Computed example of a mutant assay.
Amino acid sequence: MQLPAYLRMLVGAERSLADAYRAVASANPDEADVRFTCTGFASDSGRHARRAGARRGAV
C-alpha cells in the first residue's frame, strides 16, 4: 500500500511550509500583521506535520 509513502511526503511538505512561513515572518519584523499571520500558519503546519507523523506509525 502506498499510504505510508504519501504520509511521509505530507509530513515533509508541512514541515517545509512551516519553515517557509517562519522565514517570511522573520523577514518582515516591521509588518505586525504579516508576522502574526505567518507565525500562526507556521504553528498550524507544524501541528499538522506532527499529527500526520503520528498517524504514519499507525498505518
Rank of each mutant, 00 (worst) to 15 (best):
R8V: 06
V34W: 03
L7A: 09
G40E: 05
T37E: 00
R22K: 07
R22F: 03
S45C: 04
L17F: 03
D19W: 08
A27M: 12
A49C: 04
R47A: 04
V11G: 06
S26N: 05
L3Y: 06
A23Y: 06
P29M: 08
R35G: 05
P29H: 12
L7P: 09
L10D: 09
L17A: 14
A23P: 14
S45V: 05
V24P: 09
G40T: 08
D44F: 04
D44L: 14
A20S: 14
E14F: 04
S26H: 10
G12A: 10
A52M: 06
A42G: 15
T37W: 00
F41S: 05
S26M: 12
A13V: 10
E14A: 02
S26K: 06
L10M: 13
A23E: 10
S43C: 14
G53F: 02
P4G: 10
R47D: 13
E31Y: 12
G12Q: 07
N28M: 08
R51N: 13
V59A: 05
R50P: 04
G12M: 12
A52H: 02
A42K: 03
T39Y: 00
D33W: 05
N28A: 08
A27N: 09
E14V: 02
P29T: 06
D30G: 06
S43I: 00
A52V: 05
R35V: 09
Y6N: 07
A52S: 11
V59T: 15
R55N: 13
A18D: 09
R55D: 13
E14Q: 06
G53R: 00
R8E: 11
A25L: 03
V24Q: 13
E31H: 11
R56G: 11
R15Y: 06
R51I: 12
M1C: 08
N28E: 14
G46R: 01
R8Q: 11
A25Q: 01
V24F: 07
D19V: 11
D30Q: 10
E14W: 03
A58M: 07
R56P: 07
A32L: 09
Y21Q: 04
G53H: 10
T39W: 00
A54Q: 13
Q2I: 07
E14G: 09
R15P: 01
E31V: 08
H48S: 04
A32F: 12
A52Q: 08
Y21E: 15
R35P: 01
T37V: 02
P29F: 02
Q2F: 13
R8S: 05
G57K: 00
A25P: 03
A42M: 14
A52P: 03
D19P: 04
T39I: 01
D33I: 02
A5L: 15
A5Y: 08
N28I: 12
R22E: 01
A42I: 15
V34F: 03
A27F: 14
M9N: 09
D44H: 03
L3V: 15
